[in-house]
Design a protein around this nucleic acid. Structure first.
Lengths: 342, 342
DNA sequence: CGCATTTATGAAAACATTTGCAAAACTATT
DNA sequence: AATAGTTTTGCAAATGTTTTCATAAATGCG
């Protein structure tokens, strides 16, 4: 039915077709209750016939909300970020927002550039991943006075409201757990930490917790491995091949831990009998891997949802106090990849 | 430095600060070469001082491109889609496009609604996942004459250019492979197929290929399992517990296959000695799981990249022929989870 | 039925830009 | 120094909406 001719159809095209003024058509969309049912009906058919689609850009220049939220993550390739984004998107979609998504690949400069682009699009809100960002990023946010939230990592005193888990706590929890199982000969495997405050915090706290218990990790038992199952499998295999083996391996995240699990399997080591392996994150497959991975859960979905609620709230009611940080507690998931030393 | 006062800064604010007209400021951004170096410099500092950020919405109503591409996927929770999106996003970001992302969760009605929303935002292009869509969706696309591509699945005769792998081919490849290994007692496990043409096509072709070889899959060896490791582990465990066991299990995707692998492990079955298990997709961990999974690779990154290139091309040069479909060939990855029957 | 309300609609200004055209400011040439 | 040509800039119109204000139409009431 809709008119297929290429001439652009705008609000006045519809107005003409319905024999009303443009203002009335505008009202049809924004305050339908102000219209006489008969006119409403007339416009309705006109819209249908012309195939009219509202132009959000034209609305936006009136200071009307754009209906978009900019979401800035390191990468979608980590399942955990994909999960947060999905949850966030679902949450804000209900309120009519669409997300503008971009990833910076841990490059702070790109993050700034992308944020600017978001701002050019006049996003109604911004989501940034992690607590640490370039000072220029914060200045831009301050200056534009745009509702923003930092997700994934939590800190009570963050510069903008943060919604996420306390990564230091998570690190301490897993380290404490391993310690409590009686392990003292412990190896660690973490991802590189440049531009990644989350991994950084985790590593530091794990090492510190161990140190406080009098456990020091020898140089060659402290592995740095990129986020990849194959890499971690390889590195762990090398570690396990050494004559002198640790009794436990703490991994900075579950991907690394999965790789380590496979490495153990490939090396003929039995987990948790010969070695205990733990991760951080509780990623999707972690509960089902063999053996099920002991880890601490960082509730991604929950974070996405909470962030979505907080941000829509802040956008819809800008007078309300600038949102508060929210801590989504990590949870120790005791499964079968770690055991107590006899 | 930038002015922190809340009064909105627009192009005329900058113009005043630089003692030029608004048009000149506009030219500063769009045709800088038309400006005298001195004026350019003056505007430059004015922009900096005022903290001005261009308003894309205002440009867009002039028919200028919005610089956004709408990407519509079923869900980000499947790593494979996250991967395509990431690759696509990287590709188009280079050309200055930002993506508007939304997921429909396999609900065709929602897909239509989201597409409309994209169109309201005047996206410059649209990416849809899969070949099958509501007729209304295609009509909208036809009517709006907007560059569009269907990704993930390929078909030579698709209604809009499709860029992806031939899922039927992938299904046939893996079925043929299992057959060629000498298996005849074969079980299959596929995800539910409603609203999911990809899974549908795979299942049909696998069954058909087996049938052509004279192999029929008994009712209770044909499992339908939602996309989830834990579910598939459970279902596979039930299957393996039966007295009469198949010699091979073909899974509709690698997630299902991973679950089955864990199930075998948990049941004390050795893979591939006691049973061969294969998947489709070659997901991220598939090469590193124990044993490494035999599967057929659906090159997600490649698809995302190709789609990105094709779409930017179509947007930048609309006169060029409406893009062509592109087949990204699936590749059989022979690893260790399947063996030839003696 | 006429007047005062109330309700529904239209005209025009506003929003932040871009752009065609014309005027102004330079340069080069004689 | 005057002219012609070129480069740089400004003015004003245009873009697709929303909104304020005013007017027209409908309704209620005595």
């Amino acid at each position: 039915m809709p008119d297929k001719s290429k001439k652009k159809v705008d609000i006045v095209t519809v107005a003409k077709a319905a024999r009303v003024s443009a203002s009335t058509v505008s009202r049809y969309f924004n305050h339908p209750d102000l219209l006489k049912p008969a006119t409403r009906k007339r416009i309705d058919t006109a819209v249908r016939k012309t195939g009219y689609i509202r132009n959000r850009a034209a609305q936006t220049i009136h200071g009307i909300r754009s209906g978009t939220i900019g979401v800035l993550i390191p990468t979608l390739d980590h399942a955990i970020f994909a999960e947060v984004v999905q949850a966030f998107s679902d949450e804000v979609a209900d309120a009519g927002f669409t997300i503008l998504l971009a990833s910076h690949g841990y490059d702070l400069q790109r993050e700034y550039a992308i944020l600017r682009k978001f701002l050019e699009h006049r996003v109604d809100g911004v989501v940034l991943t992690g607590l640490d960002h370039d000072e220029a990023v914060f200045q831009l946010l301050d200056q534009q006075q745009i509702p923003s939230v930092l997700i994934w990592n939590y800190a009570a005193h963050s510069r903008y409201p943060s919604i996420g888990a306390d990564n230091e706590l998570a690190g301490r929890m897993i380290a404490d757990h391993v310690l409590s199982l009686g392990h003292r000969r412990i190896a660690v495997m973490f991802p590189p930490t440049q531009g990644n405050d989350r991994a950084q915090a985790r590593r530091d706290i794990v090492l510190e917790t161990l140190a406080q218990a009098g456990v020091t990790v020898p140089e060659d038992w402290s592995l740095t491995t990129v986020y990849s199952i194959s890499e971690s499998k390889q590195d762990a295999q090398a570690l396990f091949a050494q004559p002198d083996r640790p009794t436990a391996l703490i991994c900075g995240n579950d991907v690394l831990a999965s790789g380590a699990l496979y490495a153990a399997h490939a090396t003929g080591l039995s987990v948790p009998h010969d070695i205990s392996i733990v991760g951080i994150g509780d990623f999707k497959g972690s509960a089902d891997i063999e053996p099920p991975l002991t880890t601490v859960r960082l509730p991604a979905r929950r974070i996405g949802q909470e962030a979505g609620q907080a941000l829509t709230q802040a956008i819809i009611d800008p007078t309300a106090a600038q949102g508060h940080s929210l801590h989504v507690a990590p949870i120790l998931m005791q499964r079968q990849s770690a055991r107590a030393l006899p």
